[in-house]
Simulated assay, not measured.
Amino acid sequence: MKRLIKYIISVLVVAAIAVSLWLYYPTYQIRQMKEETAPTSAQAALSYVDYFSNMDKETLTHLAIGDSIIAGFGSENEKSFVDDFSRLLEEQTGKTVALENEGILGINSTNLNTLVQRGAFDEQMKRADLITINVGGNDILEMLNQGDYKNVVANFDSMRGTFIQNLTAITEKIKQENPSATIVFLEMYNPLKQNHNLYKVADQLLPKWNVKIYETARQYEHSIVLETTKVINSQHLQYLSSDGVHPNALGYEALSKQMLKQLKKKPFIGSV
């Protein structure tokens, strides 16, 4: 009997460790990747903003592709964060920033990848100095619409795998058309209140999703991840529009400032 009890306890301990690793290891991985990219004193001399300022051209081209976050849905002034950011970049560099906003409401990663592979943005990619990408939220929403949150949890790994395949293919296409373009990916954020019955589920799953975005960015030179979760979270619900999902004008402005902050801080070296 004692052996049986010890065996059961051992199994429970192993199971608890496995669950903890499944839930919390992605958060640790993200933190480690952020720390790896912290600039040394020598590297800090040239940031991304410095790089754009020093480019031998008067006009910088900013291409933005993806979903409703790129399009600016939810903003009272009909401007997205890429509009706000482009204006801030103009102020910082003294150059004109030509924004080409190709955000499409409701698009998922598979459909965006299909457009990219068909060459829908080839000419824009070739001339872009900066390319911002946000996609993936509708992948989850479409799965949620097919059932309840249990459906999302049950199919999470498969859904995430499809998303990363699409994001990697999109990035490969960009680098094929324009190896020198800087790419900014967006984290997926949790817009729910802490007392929402699905808040903890979302908070546990999103790091597993976001870590794959960081791993993708890590594979390519001049690619970074915008830390949207620092801006939009349960502590900053004032940044959400009335639908409780998309940012409002203040939220988009806050995202643009976060993007500028990161590009002023990140060293312009290889994969960051």
Rank of each mutant, 00 (worst) to 15 (best):
Q258Y: 04
Y25D: 01
G251L: 01
S223C: 15
Q176D: 13
Y239P: 02
S68R: 01
K193I: 08
D67P: 11
M259S: 07
Q262R: 05
Q194D: 12
Y252R: 02
E58W: 00
I65V: 14
L192R: 05
L167S: 02
E172W: 05
L240M: 07
G244H: 03
K173T: 14
G251V: 01
L115E: 09
S10Q: 05
N178A: 12
F163L: 13
A169N: 08
N190H: 06
D84S: 10
I17K: 02
I70T: 10
S20H: 01
G94C: 11
M1K: 06
L23E: 03
N108L: 11
L237F: 00
K264E: 15
K257N: 11
L263W: 02
Q235A: 15
E215P: 04
A128M: 09
L198W: 00
K212Q: 14
V245H: 01
K265A: 15
I164S: 09
N151S: 11
W22N: 12
L115D: 10
V13A: 13
E221R: 10
P207N: 08
N54I: 05
S109E: 06
Y48P: 02
L99T: 02
Y149F: 15
I30E: 03
A15E: 03
I69N: 04
Q117Y: 02
L46H: 03
I232D: 01
D157S: 14
Y214I: 10
G251M: 01
F85C: 07
N195F: 06
E100I: 15
G161K: 05
H196F: 09
R87V: 15
R127F: 03
K266L: 15
K150S: 14
Y48R: 03
D203Y: 03
R127I: 14
E221Q: 13
Q92A: 15
K95T: 09
Q117T: 11
H222W: 12
H236I: 08
F121M: 06
G244W: 02
I69S: 06
G66A: 10
I30L: 10
R31W: 11
R218P: 01
T96N: 12
E227C: 07
Q204V: 12
L186T: 05
A44T: 04
I107S: 03
K264T: 12
R127L: 13
K2N: 11
M1V: 10
I140H: 00
G147P: 03
N190F: 06
Q43S: 14
N138Y: 05
N111P: 00
K230G: 09
F73I: 14
E177F: 08
S80A: 12
Y7P: 00
D83I: 05
M1G: 10
E102L: 12
